[in-house]
Amino acid sequence: MSIPAVAVYDLSYAYPDGTEALRGITFTVEPGLAVALVGANGAGKSTLLQHLNGGLFNARQGEVRIGETVVSRKSVSLVRHAVGMVFQDSDDQLFMPTVAEDVAFGPLNAGLSSEEVERRVESALERVGMTQVRERPPYRLSAGEKRAVAIASVLAMEPEVLVMDEPSANLDPRARRRLIELLRSFGHTRIIATHDLELAVEVCSRVIVLDEGRVVADGPMVGILNDEALMEEHGLERPHILRHMHPHT
């Protein structure tokens, strides 16, 4: 068996005020797989995501591995280049004055040559179909364009793992559809925290359900989301789309 792209072992974390956010989380993700992370608000999704790219690392116990690297204060810059994080509010992520500057931010910090930075910016924008907004300031973009550019800014760092927090939040139906197609087309390992279960069904093959900081279910997408009792117990709802799908597909 190959080394998992992401491995979390017995991870627990409490915030400084004592709130226990994660309690003994364990799971691994194989390279190239797309995994949905679902759970009601406050279930610990965001806290978990922050651990995946070194946003938080003073866990009370357990460890996170990205490939062969254990996430720690020492390895954090390596980890941040391997794991690209797409934030929930694109306005928080697109802080530079133009789209091109924003996409270049990560590669410039990595100390790449200006030709390489230029190549990365161009190919990342092309990948998400946003080359035409290159010189625009981020606040002049629609929500869908912002999200696409935010993804490009992460792709430009050429990460192995993409971690996303609510990628479809605030998108209109057409922008959401485009996002789903984009996410399906990626070959990266993807971990997507979302309330949008229909997006999860279309993009991911596996789902991890969190509740009160614990993994309460982990398995193939359709089987778990069809388990109405489980879903309701943890504050979720069986997605409508599955009612029209055959359980074996």
Partner: peptide, 23 residues
């Protein structure tokens, strides 16, 4: 709070206190 999230996003992309602009 927003400033804090922006900082997180900056750090996630390798921010080290220095901001570099394109040539």
């Amino acid at each position: 709070d927003r400033a804090d999230r922006i900082y997180q996003a900056m750090v996630a992309r390798g921010f080290d206190g220095e901001i570099r602009l394109l040539q």
